[in-house]
Design a protein around this nucleic acid. Structure first.
Lengths: 320, 320
DNA sequence: TCTTGCTATGAAATGCGTTTCATAAATTAA
DNA sequence: TTAATTTATGAAACGCATTTCATAGCAAGA
């Protein structure tokens, strides 16, 4: 395979000039530029990108950390990220962590080793003390409130959102409210948990462990929730479900078991995925694609750390 | 940042020896190895991976081309690919093409430029005449029957599968059978189309354009299908739906409109996604995660071109 | 004792493009 | 006309690790 040197020789110029042509530098006389292009054509020259990377110290690659690729929440987020990456001529390196800390650290190490230019962490598992060790190597962008950290972030105020949702249900007459969530730990989960217990003490209800459903990620998990609901002596009358797909699963399963919605139980979803619309699920709209776009833009911006709060909109439909 | 030269100097050895330590070459005396490791420790040495790539001509990066990241079919496939990549210490570069040919070509060019070691194309848009121009640069793996091409592939015999499914419905007493599919073109779609028309002529039914539903990818598309169904004078009595999510959407929408399943219309899904189980949808199980795994293994194998046919299993439930 | 063969090590070549610096020529401004 | 710019070009340094080749020491086998 021909390299820049061969081209230079063939075109009768220096490698510098070839490099200038390659990078559209203005200071190249037209006839020489032609000659270089001609030589490239003839040799079917392909620039060795790894050499470019070594030389420039950048890769046009952005790492994206997600726990699961196969989840509608991250699906939409990655869609937004991917679209914007495309526009800016960046490519994505995908890290599926399954919430294993080591996977996330691998991604951070790729940043450190300059194999990627920036890293977007869509759902974090590592502690801040780990993350902060890597901030010097390139932009790290988080999808959670990270305003007091040395990174950029695009986030939702989950405390406020959750509080508002609970108040909304309360105002509809519900006092026994439960919620379904993906994982126990995680910054967003903690915010929500806090909002929940604060709300309970405000309305004078006691905390009932039974009303909280973890590992509730997907459509298929709805069935388990409904099963547990059926076994309860004193089930909640409303459920906040942090994923529309899980909410859809719950709705479907309820219908099957003859539980009326919202009569017997009110269901409120999250995200406003298309499925929520079809199934008329009341939900909180989270503009995931747009968030993905912002995350990408922050990842590209190596100059400054920014923080963008995204607001959430209530979509009233028929399950509350 | 320290480089291999600094380490060599510090440890009082040559760069070659440092490289040997780095790559676990056996011919290094224990005390020198220690000294090198010591020096690395002291300087907090980080190997420049781009230099490694340039030198070795490989990147441990595998490209993955999907039309949409946010689709359960590709979600599962990528999950399988990602898991296997992880095991083998490879990382993924994700290309979301939205079925734009140029995106796919970009991916192929990254293979050509050795920015990725191999390329997995989960759903192809480029013609073979394009693909074949890139086969010399590294393994290209397809997720369709590509036995007569210069690539590897893991695939399903969609002609046979579709035929069997149609026969199954026919044997259940259906003669007016339609189908829902994602896109018009594409190798798999063509195979299915052929199976469909062959089947029709075998049973002596005429081809009814109305019975075919395109762009039927997701849950939300089920609603449109049902709407069209309702407007038909002579609707089909059975529908083959090439995605469980779309099937689930159809089932949900039918329930809402009071169309009985399988009484008024039988629905047969594809993939056996979890949603199909919950909604009791009869479906054809496609082991997508396993297919992803095989695709990855083929991508890593640069020695030979292999072709793996994956068989599909009928899962009988309650919608047929 | 002499030949093989293995262990251990380093110098130098290799992979390849970018960028800095120096220089020369051609313009433009004063 | 002189000074200051701008244009154009190339040599050489730089980014960094891997790999080939050569060499030397040492051990095992003939």
């Amino acid at each position: 395979m021909a390299n820049i040197k061969d081209i230079a020789k063939k075109a009768g110029v220096s490698v510098t000039t070839v490099s200038r042509v390659l990078n559209n530098h203005p200071y190249v006389r037209e006839d020489k530029r032609e000659a270089v292009l001609q030589a490239m054509e003839e040799f079917n020259y392909q620039r060795n990108i790894n050499a470019v990377h070594l030389s420039k110290g950048e890769t046009l690659l952005i790492g994206v950390v997600v726990p699961f690729t196969n989840h509608p929440y991250f699906g939409l987020l990655v869609e937004g990220i991917a679209n914007e990456a495309m526009k800016n001529n960046y490519k994505l390196v995908l890290f599926q962590t399954n919430y294993e800390e080591n996977r996330e650290i691998e991604a951070l190490k790729m940043l450190q080793h300059k194999q990627i230019d920036s890293l977007i962490i869509c759902s974090r598992i590592c502690g801040w003390e780990v993350i902060s060790q890597f901030t010097e190597y390139g932009p790290i962008v988080l999808c959670e409130d990270a305003r007091n950290q040395n990174v950029s972030s695009t986030f939702i105020d989950h405390y406020m959102t959750f509080t508002n949702a609970l108040e909304y249900l309360y105002n509809k007459g519900h006092q026994k409210i439960g919620y379904c969530i993906g994982r126990r730990s995680g910054a967003n989960s903690r915010q929500r948990g806090k909002a929940y217990s604060d709300f309970l003490s405000r309305i004078g209800e006691s905390y009932n462990e039974e009303y909280i459903f973890y590992e509730c990620l997907n459509f298929e998990h709805g069935e388990e929730v409904v099963q547990r609901l059926l076994n309860m002596e004193n089930p909640p009358t409303a459920l906040l479900v942090t994923s529309d797909f899980a909410a859809a699963g719950i709705v479907t399963s309820c219908r099957e078991k003859g539980i009326r919605i919202p009569g017997d139980i009110a269901i409120m979803g999250f995200d406003n995925q298309p499925i929520a619309k079809i199934m008329h699920i009341t939900t909180l709209e989270i503009p995931l694609v747009q968030m993905g776009k912002k995350l990408m833009l922050q990842a590209i911006d190596s100059e400054s750390h920014t923080h963008e709060e995204i607001s959430v909109k209530l979509i009233e439909r028929q399950t509350v």
